[in-house]
Amino acid sequence: MDSHNSIYRVCYAFLNNEEDIKDLKQEIYIQIWKSIEQFEGKSSWNTFIYRIAVNVAIRFKGNLISHQQKMTDVKLEKVDPMNVTYIDNENVQYLKYFLKKLPDNERLIISLYLEGLSYKEIAEAMGLTAGHAGVKVQRIKQQLKIQIEKEHDRF
């Protein structure tokens, strides 16, 4: 696994603002560093890292929302257009557009699926049962496929 880019992609799927993505990535690395001592070996090292990433991301976004509400009373999704990550690939842009519409937990689940994690690994990282993770992934995939078909029909 290319850990660095993989963690970046999970952050990228979860947040929109490049500065926030950078901060989240740092927080994840710090937490991984601090959590090395808690690694039990019950799951693979990769799953352990993703579990940390998921937990930090959820906490990070919670802090971000409360901070933004305190400072400007502006909703999180209203990001500075000059500061949004732009990746010049139609597929990526489309996927990102779709991800933005999903609730946080589903966005994280699908981002882990996109990284190639099995249902069992997604379940471990998200604190779900493997069955539940599988159902969620299938449902999100289904929604995405319907969207793709709709787009095809339009053109």
């Binding site: 660095h4 970046y8 990228y12 990746i87 690939n89 990526v92 996109l114």
Partner: peptide, 27 residues
């Protein structure tokens, strides 16, 4: 289309070309 999207997604690399040493120092 979905498979091709996944492939494209997995090719995303970190756009912040940080120097690993700087990043390590910050952490």
């Amino acid at each position: 289309d979905f498979d091709s999207m996944i492939n494209s997604w997995r090719n995303i690399n970190d756009v912040n070309k940080e120097n690993p040493e700087d990043f390590f120092r910050l952490v």
